[in-house]
Design a protein around this nucleic acid. Structure first.
Length: 589
RNA sequence: GCCUCCGUAGCUCAGCGGAUAGAGCAAGUGACUUCUAAUCACUUGGCCGCAGGUUCGAGUCCUGCCGGGGGCACCA
């Protein structure tokens, strides 16, 4: 709870119905009132059907009894009408004044009356995780977009969010790259050496490929590269400086992508493999001392007590390889220990591809056995499905390469620009470009966020940028229409008169606006952003219906102000919702 | 073999035990001297993979099949 919280109507109705049930049948005190939105009234309660058996009364009779209490009770606000329907449904209608009251109260709140269901919960979110010196590709799309939406949303709900970008910034490949750069001092890859509009990571990516080629072709280079790996791990000053340079330049390039995507990640959110590097031996030592990690064929492994492989033997985590090196099993174990011990996290989220499900199951199990992870800490692998191409296979280019993230975004923005240009508008070229960018990027993000997180989905630029139906642009467009009305209304004061009757379209819109906070809390609990997308789409549809049915600017005095109030609240709610998804809400398009 | 995700309209997908299963796309008809037609209204379209079970009530929960994706130790 916070001082600005406005209780939703549905929760007020729940309280009223629960109270009536308690009073009608004290034996059932505390029973769920089962209040839902309804097609037949504002709300319905299904409690009578659920409770009839326990009460040994016919559902319809129970419903009637509850109604009598509700009608008699003077303290039944905000319910105005209630009736029995069908086998025992309670149809509940809320007073118009109560609905207007919600609109006014939410407008008066700087945060739309939304509660803080995640208040004070220290939540670490691991997402994005690109590899240094490599280009971000389609595989980074979902983790980055979903992770960022959750970071925004949980933060808004009061959680103390700590973003963690687990970048791939360590490993033998850097020895190879550093050695190659040393031997090709003329290679340009720093962002200030490159032509404007080109980025440092593609340059590094190219150099990395060249290095790999030479590594495979020239045995003497192979030896020099291996020596560099040793030097890097030993902390050789020149080598480490070069490595740091590469990391810094890559971070700079990632930031360009993040800025374009509207992602919150900053370089200081990066805690990658190198960050955990000098903690790995401690992690392994602790696991070994506890008898959790054991030796096997020269390596140190953790045998799962829960999962067996195809041969019937326990599945294992490779905690230390035979050659003494560490893999990502160890690094991920280190992240759990660090985030709990040092960051004092209450909740750990790993926004990672669902194919890693077994891996996370194993490291969570090991972290529990080690005593780092306790029952009061929530840990979740926020798994998501694969991005597929039109053929239903994981998305690749025609030549079979992975698709670069920037190419994907460019394609979406280009199509958006073409569509925007077709429309009648009085926009300057700059405005047009900006809107194409916002619409194109928004379309990609919305398409990703609006589908169930756990399912694979087919990436289809044409569909997402078609801009009709359930797309990001539909929401953005609804927002611009509201903005247009508000611009033209010279009076910005929107004093609500709660005594006015509600038009059905006003009622539907106001009720939808009132559930925004409930939806946010639910998304915070279930970590499923597509529910927010669905709600915003319903909201935009409700506004469009209102827009068609209820003239605002030409309405007479008291109604006009009430409608302006609805416009204000709808605009702010849509903007807030889009913001939590990380999608721009332009005022014109 | 085991684990896991999935199967809903021609296509892409919603639907945290409730009334007649919903959207969008596609197809067709109509609506802009009007607060932005990137919109709206109407029409067509369904053994919710199959079979049992639990329940007053199952697309939703349980079990078993069928079909598909993914995963199961020294790459991250």
């Amino acid at each position: 709870m916070n001082e600005h919280e406005v209780r939703s109507l549905i929760s007020q109705v729940e309280t009223a119905v629960s109270g009536a049930i308690d009073q009608a049948l004290p034996a059932l005190t505390g029973a769920d009132s089962v209040v839902r939105r309804s097609e037949h009234a504002d709300f319905q309660s299904n409690a009578a059907l659920a409770l009839a058996k326990r009460a040994r009364i016919k559902p319809a009779d129970l419903a009637t009894t509850v109604i009598e209490v509700l009608r008699a009770d003077g303290n039944n606000a905000p319910v105005a009408e209630v009736s029995v329907s069908g086998p025992g449904f309670l149809n509940l209608t809320v007073a118009d004044a109560a609905i207007w009251g919600q609109v006014a109260a939410r407008l008066a709140s700087p945060r739309l009356g939304i509660g803080t269901s995640e208040q004070g919960r220290r939540t670490v979110i691991d997402y994005s995780a690109p590899n240094i010196a490599k280009e971000m590709h389609v595989g980074h799309l979902r983790t980055t977009i979903i992770g960022d939406a959750l970071a925004r949303l949980l933060g808004f709900l009061g959680a103390e969010v700590i973003r963690q970008n687990h970048v791939g910034d360590w490993g033998t490949q850097f020895g190879m790259l550093i050695q190659y750069l040393d031997e090709h001092a003329d290679a340009a890859w720093h962002h200030d050496q490159l032509a404007p509009g080109t980025s440092t990571v593609p340059a590094l990516d190219g150099l990395y490929r060249a290095a790999r080629k030479e590594f495979d072709a020239d045995p003497t280079f192979t030896d020099r590269a291996r020596a560099r790996v040793v030097a890097l791990q030993a902390g050789d000053e020149v080598t480490v400086a070069r490595w740091r340079d590469i990391v810094t330049e890559s971070e700079f390039a990632f930031r360009e992508v993040y800025d374009r995507l509207g992602v919150l990640l900053e370089p200081e959110d990066s805690a990658g493999e190198s960050f955990y590097n000098d903690r790995l031996s401690d992690v392994v030592a602790e696991l070994t001392a506890a008898g959790i990690a054991v030796e096997s064929d020269g390596a140190l492994v953790v045998y799962s007590q829960e999962v067996t492989g195809p041969d019937g033997n326990p599945v294992t985590l490779m905690v230390r390889k035979k050659d003494g090196g560490y893999g990502y099993d160890t690094t991920d174990l280190a992240t759990i220990r660090y985030r709990i011990r040092d960051l004092k996290a209450d909740r750990l989220l790993y926004v990672v591809d669902s194919r890693q499900a077994l891996h996370f199951r194993l490291i969570f199990e090991a972290a529990r056995r080690a005593g780092w992870l306790t029952d009061d800490i929530d840990i979740t692998h926020v798994a998501f499905g694969t991005v597929l191409g039109p053929d239903g296979r994981p998305f690749k280019t025609r030549s079979g390469d992975t698709v670069k993230l920037v190419d994907l975004l460019d394609a979406a923005v280009d199509k958006a620009r073409a569509t925007v240009a077709e429309k009648d508008h009085d926009l300057t070229n700059d405005e047009l470009s900006q809107i194409a960018e916002q619409a194109g990027i928004g379309a990609v993000k919305y398409a990703d966020l609006s589908t169930s997180r756990t399912k694979d989905y087919v990436f289809d630029v044409d569909r997402m940028v078609s801009f009709a139906g359930n797309t990001g642009v539909y929401l953005q467009y609804a927002h611009t229409r509201i903005c247009s009305i508000l611009r033209k209304a010279d009076d910005t004061s929107a004093e609500v008169d709660p005594t006015l009757p509600l038009h059905p379209a006003e009622r539907a819109l106001a009720l939808e606006l009132d559930t925004f906070g409930e939806v946010l809390a639910e998304v915070g609990r279930l970590l499923e952003p597509h529910r927010l997308c669905g709600h915003l789409y319903e909201l935009a549809k409700a506004f469009t219906d209102f827009y068609e049915a209820c003239p605002v600017l030409s309405a007479d005095a008291p109604a006009r102000a009430n409608r302006l109030a609805l416009c204000h609240l709808a605009a702010r709610t849509l903007r807030q919702g889009l913001n939590l998804l990380g999608i721009a809400a332009p005022e014109r398009m």
